[in-house]
Amino acid sequence: MECFSISGSCVSNLHFHFTENGHSQPPLFNSQFTAFSSLILSSNFPNYPYPFILFPLQTLLHLFLAYSKALERTQSSSFGYHFGLQEPLETELVTVPEATDQLAENLPSDSGVYAVFDSNSELQFVGISRNIAASVLAHRKSVPELCSSVKVGVVAEPDRTALTQAWKSWMEEHIKATGKVPSGNETGNTTWIRQAPKKKPDLRLTPGRHVQLTVPLEELIDRLVKENKVVAFIKGSRSAPLCGFSQRVVGILENQGVDYESVDVLDEEYNCGLRETLKKYSNWPTFPQIFVNGELVGGCDILTSMHENGELDGLFKK
């Protein structure tokens, strides 16, 4: 997954403390302060495609988007990105609508930055998203009391650098104005950051191949599959399976939302000898192999077929 794919998981990388690329220092909020210009709403775009409707905040937002998109069409490619930068933070709040479909209509599903304000118009959080509307929706679901209104800035050329720059400029602006980081962006604050569910590590059968086992490998396998409800023996790790069949198995298990353990049969360091021993143990000559409640369910074909027949739900509930 790209770092910026969804707001929750991505924002952590842009948290006040940068960790990407090995930098452990906070981003610099100094010299590069952007001169924020007010939006030019009228004369430049007499034929903007968005109607003035309802209340002015929305109108401004729409205009901004129209302007941004038009710029994208007419100007050099980097212009939209600069436009994103110049988008001032303090004005033009968009009330977060109650209904989901309204939210989708009023907010762009584009990439960019967004700032969330509470009912006192206090800035709570500045985030980056590949789909602003979806991110805001997710925030409103998790912390409705803090999501009163938002400010969005679509970034026209939304590569990583551009998005980071846009985010930085908003942070800079807020810090300059208030002297502090938005509370949601403070280190350690996890209110807004929905960590992508961490993938479990793959299980290891042995402490290492040079360590003499006191228990036969076969017994270790036996314990493992009996002590864990669902165990998948796969080629490669669960986060990066090295075989198409293993990949499909992981996909199905993830798709089912099953809490499962995985063992990499190719791991010669920690699962040395596992392949041959497991083949004998299970009387099954190929991998992947899936065990439920200590019993072999089968390999990729069987799991796929059960998945398609809807038999898996029953199996995992047992």
């Binding site: 099954w284 072999l296 369910v297 069987i302 077929s305």
Partner: peptide, 8 residues
């Protein structure tokens, strides 16, 4: 025969 049995 179960699927596992058939494959076996």
């Amino acid at each position: 025969q179960s699927l596992v049995k058939r494959h076996r």
